[in-house]
């Protein structure tokens, strides 16, 4: 499954990083503490968080995340949008909570 497929299946909104839409997805990791994400997420994961600062993009790039999903309608900061576009990291937004996203991901992944 690609990031594009995920957007369609879960009705997510692309807020940055359109160049990353064809990244392949393999699993999911949910956490807001960056050190834990660095250490415990895997390449190709969908990373679900409510963090919205530029460091989210840096961590997603360093861990080769497939994409980032920002839960609960949190707004990605403008400087983070620019970096995500530059790095080609797709950042998606949704009104759902991390739990609700996880439940839906279980059905589609």
């Amino acid at each position: 499954m690609t990031v594009s497929d995920l957007i369609n299946k879960l009705d997510l909104k692309l807020v940055a990083g359109a160049d990353g839409l064809d990244h392949a997805i393999s699993g999911c990791y949910i956490c807001d503490l960056l050190s834990l994400v660095m250490s415990n997420s895997s390449s190709g994961n969908v990373w679900v968080t409510v963090q919205t600062n530029i460091n989210v993009v840096a961590v997603a790039a360093l861990t080769d995340a497939a994409c980032v999903v920002i839960a609960e309608n949190s707004q990605l900061e403008p400087i983070a949008v620019s970096k995500a576009d530059k790095e080609g990291i797709a950042v998606l937004s949704t009104h759902m909570t991390a739990y609700e996203i996880a439940c839906k991901l279980k059905d589609v992944l």
Partner: peptide, 16 residues
């Protein structure tokens, strides 16, 4: 508030 400060920094450095 930015998601740092988990107390994992030096631990991760030592691990990896």
């Amino acid at each position: 508030s930015l998601g740092f400060g988990a107390g994992m920094g030096l631990f991760n450095m030592d691990t990896y």
